[in-house]
């Protein structure tokens, strides 16, 4: 009996989703979801093979999560860099020793 291959494609348009967001999601989920990414002119197409449950939706959710993070960091990155730099400089204490 021939096995049935179930395939699902999701297209992430570059007008909304950056390649970085799709790549990050792929990195996070590569051990959990079976997929292939194809870069097209106007976005990224992700093909899911033999998926079970809602793996494509989980992938899409992670892309959305990453894109939101990228969008927020465009606004807040200056502030974040300031705070993180201060934390790291404080941690090394300016070289103070006993």
């Amino acid at each position: 009996m021939a096995s049935e291959i179930i395939e699902k494609k999701i297209f992430f348009a570059s007008s909304v989703y950056s390649a970085e967001a799709v790549d990050m999601a792929a990195f996070i989920l590569e051990d959990k979801v079976d997929f292939v990414i194809e870069r097209k002119d106007n976005g990224m197409e992700v093909t899911f093979n033999q998926f079970s449950e809602n793996e494509p939706e989980i992938f899409a959710n992670e892309v959305l999560n990453q894109q939101c993070r990228i969008d927020v960091s465009k606004v807040s990155s200056g502030l974040t860099k300031l705070i993180v730099s201060k934390a790291l400089i404080s941690a090394i204490g300016g070289g103070k020793r006993e």
Binding site: V72, T80, L88, A91
Partner: peptide, 25 residues
């Protein structure tokens, strides 16, 4: 200095600074 500014420390700081988190901000 090498330990306290290691990559994992920097990454933890950036990831947990809530102004950079999509929902938290």
């Amino acid at each position: 200095e090498k330990v306290l500014t290691a990559d994992a420390v920097r990454a933890c700081k950036c990831a947990s600074e809530l102004n950079a988190q999509a929902m938290c901000s």
